[in-house]
Design a binder for these strands. Structure first.
Lengths: 219, 219
DNA sequence: TAGATTGTTAATCGATTAACAATC
DNA sequence: TAGATTGTTAATCGATTAACAATC
């Protein structure tokens, strides 16, 4: 549960808001001005009851018998997601993945701006990527302060992630998106979202194994 | 809930098994031969009661008063995750992200092997990456059959993801890891894991906004 | 035996779903 | 008014947590 002013929003609901926003923007692009909970839910990959329940935690946005105004609901969710204010990102660890994340083109449209890239490899420091010069992670504290970073994307190797995360937190950053395959131990008020590609593949492998064990070997 | 032979394993438990395996392998590398639920749980970022409960769905692996043998528990979880058999992957969509995923070096150690890369861009088709020649997505069906792919990583732009996913499923593939920002509509027996980087950032932004709304503007 | 730690039970908590009254 | 669709209630379901008996 996450406190938002007076309201309390379940974490599971928050995790779905980006899907709703995405679906609403797709609808808006297609020229659709009004939608229903069932249409929006289908495009978001959830049930319509769940969509309505989720929205009910944030307020009341529809018109009974009619549906939802696409533009205004999108605007509302975007605001709830804090996308009105600009979020300044640093990416730490400019390997294959960090490089790809730096060059991702969708940040601006979603209210994010990459303002700093850092790495520990002398071969990489000084190079430029995505219009920025890669700086040395030794200067992390200076760089974060100078560029006004509010969120960090961590794409370092696992073994150094914990130490760097602690330095990031010491700089006052409270939101971290980590691609490092370790469980970061950080104070409770720091929000860490973790993406683990190898772990996702392992979960798929479990499903494949379960299918084989339950159905007999598939054709 | 996921059926595994006679046992039934909660989906939430399956999603944590990769963390346990990772922590066990770290311990093994450090020369540790025996561990406890509390040590392993801390390294995995979960509570010790949850760890023991999760393992209990798979069987009984520890010794009361002693703990768990690191090697044999790691081996057991790896087997449960289907990492004994080899999983052959294709990556579709070799943009920034697909390229980074192709060059990720951790597959082999985890029982995965990338055997095909596909893209729709004529400028990209024919290039080589990660030791493979990038093939045209028009030949998807041929390539998947020829290379014996059992899982696909989808890293295409959103608008084409649904159509390509349908073709992948028609080839008999039942496990898909998608980085495309859309909710794929596929038959129920297809397992889709979805990673949405922009969505993760939006969830972090929600937390930042909630913090600001609840605590007043932070210093 | 005494101490330690598992595996399991039972209680709690949170999330999902179905159904429907409210209301446009 | 009749039809449609929301917002909400209540029931169900699944996941987490704490506590402890079993047992090494």
């Amino acid at each position: 549960m996450i406190e938002l002013g007076e309201a309390t929003v379940p974490a599971a609901t928050v995790a779905r808001l980006p899907y709703y926003l995405r679906a609403l923007r797709d609808l808006a692009e297609g020229g659709v001005t009004t939608t229903s909970s069932s249409e929006l839910a289908e495009r978001s990959g959830v049930g319509s009851a769940q969509l309505r329940k989720d929205l009910s935690y944030l307020g009341s946005f529809g018109t009974r018998g009619v549906g939802y105004d696409v533009q205004s609901l999108a605007q509302y969710i975007a605001t709830a997601l804090g996308l009105g204010s600009e979020h300044r990102l640093a990416i730490v660890g400019i390997g294959n993945l960090g490089h790809a994340l730096a060059n991702y083109s969708g940040y601006a449209a979603r209210g994010f701006q990459v303002v700093a890239l850092l790495d520990a490899d002398p071969q990489v420091v000084g190079n430029s990527a995505a219009g920025l010069t890669i700086e040395h992670v030794d200067a992390l504290e200076d760089v974060l302060a100078r560029t006004g970073v509010s969120m960090v994307v961590l794409a370092t190797p696992g073994p150094v992630a914990q130490a760097i995360a602690e330095r990031i937190v010491a700089c006052g950053v409270r939101e971290i998106l980590s691609f490092a395959p370790v469980a970061l131990q950080l104070p409770d008020d720091v929000v860490v979202r973790s993406v683990d590609v190898a772990g996702e593949l392992q979960i798929l492998a479990f499903h494949a194994a379960a299918r084989a064990a339950t159905n007999g070997t598939p054709r």
